[in-house]
Design a protein around this nucleic acid. Structure first.
Lengths: 262, 262
DNA sequence: TTTGACCTTGACGTAACGTCAACGTTTCTA
DNA sequence: TAGAAACGTTGACGTTACGTCAAGGTCAAA
């Protein structure tokens, strides 16, 4: 057999065969006088064996190890590990499909609302479409949701749960309106202290604690060589830059109050 | 915000952010006097949006298209298509895990028997471990199984089903013994014609037809510029090269008989 | 002042081949 | 018998989504 026949027999490309030679997965057969490789049946069997392992999901490096170790025991370990890996992959794809489904359902409501299922549900309840401040708030929450790992996402949802109860919802909407009203106000507008106080009262205690923990001044003296997780506070400055002077002042007051409460 | 803060906020590496700039997924922000990139909140929101789409499985190219087309309709098409794709992937992983399970169960019986579930079952019934010829036969079947697509695999199993019935099984084992007995015989051994005749009688009609269809002389005059599937017969020569002269002669007779029967 | 953490651009490495390129060999066909 | 297809050879670059140096400039604290 020549290389094309071998490839056709096993159902791969000739490039693949040569690639396996290159990686040492398949021994180089004898060459004819013209330099062509001449294959025997055993080569086809060996190639098929490589293919079967590859199709099941082993990397070519792993296959080479398994073939080197030849006969048995290590193969089983690798296969068991691989199966666990495939199970994880299925799981991951399931999660992705769930998010996709939400994505499809949500795109028409808020075209930019591509978040986790739970977060999407919370946002739907929480934020009226006609408030500029609510939009900002939503964006911050979406940021937090995107940045977090699955565990963090669940935690975030838990922190927000108190806000989705009916009375809290009404209070929240009222606060959004009062904040929107400050869109063109200056930093010494008389309405600021009251809004800040009510906002502090509105925030669930645990959520407030989580926010304070993420601020720059709050680093507990842990490892001396490190500066905590290093990201604290950047989001706060960036947020303030988007706010009107009055709104920024409200926020400053809120932060100060929360810090004092520690 | 500088690039490290942005990256930490959204949960990616700075390399990723720069990569997205390079691909045009994220607009380059303004530069400070020192050349540093300075990000605003909107950049974090945009980056998070890219990440959400990427995590769901869109390629960066697709994401760029979706973002360019901005607002709506095309996104939905892409997402629907993606969901179908993910469903296919889950399916494929399921198949792989099934084969893996068989692989794990079978490795201890025949360490080289890494075939599809159905084929493994057939082989277990069909081939005694102590026959050299049965081993060759198994290898040929494993080759066919490896080379075929899923549909072809099922077809192959169907072709073999008649051989797994109890009486056929007994006849098959007897034939293996008689073929093994020819391992050291010459091409004019007197036992050859009878073995060939019994072998022909043993093969299911449809399987024989399939074999003949895969032989070199059998090309039906289809497209004139093409030579059929081009692989016919290579396996036959390779197989013959592994056989003793007597066994090869048996095979030649079988092939001749089958061809005549067309 | 020096260290260390940050930033800049540029370029190479990854997995498993696909796809030329540039060339020699075999085989079919006119 | 010649020319065209179809095969074979090695070598090298392209693909995805970044990770990981390299070689240097900037900025804060010790």
């Amino acid at each position: 057999m020549r290389i094309g026949e071998l490839a056709a027999l096993v159902g791969v490309s000739t490039r693949t065969v040569r690639h396996y030679h290159h990686l040492g997965l398949l021994p180089e057969p004898v060459r004819l006088a013209n330099g062509y490789r001449e294959y025997r049946l055993r080569d086809a069997v060996a190639l098929a064996r490589v293919r079967r392992l590859a199709e099941v999901g082993l990397s070519l490096d792993e296959i080479r190890d398994v073939l080197a170790d030849d006969r048995g025991r290590e193969l089983r370990e690798v296969l068991v590990e691989l199966d666990a890996d495939l199970a994880r992959q299925q799981e991951a794809i399931g999660v992705r499909r769930a998010r996709l489904a939400v994505l499809l359902a949500e795109t028409e409501l808020h075209p930019d609302s591509t978040v986790s299922p739970d977060m999407a549900a919370v946002l739907r309840d929480l934020s009226p479409a006609d408030s500029a401040f609510a939009r900002l708030d939503r964006e911050m929450l979406m940021l937090a949701d995107t940045a977090a790992d699955p565990a963090g996402r669940a935690e975030l949802i838990d922190l927000m749960r108190p806000l989705t109860e009916p009375e809290a919802l009404a209070r929240g909407h009222a606060l959004y309106e009062r904040l929107d009203a400050l869109a063109d106000a200056g930093p010494d507008d008389p309405r600021i202290p009251a809004v800040a106080a009510d906002l502090v009262a509105h925030l669930p205690a645990e959520m407030a604690a989580a926010m304070v923990a993420n601020l720059p001044g709050a680093e507990d003296p842990a490892a001396p060589g490190s500066r905590g997780d290093g990201e604290g506070g950047a989001w706060l400055e960036a947020l303030s830059a988007e706010l009107s002077p009055a709104q920024a002042e409200v926020f400053r007051l809120v932060v100060v109050t929360l810090k004092e409460r520690t």
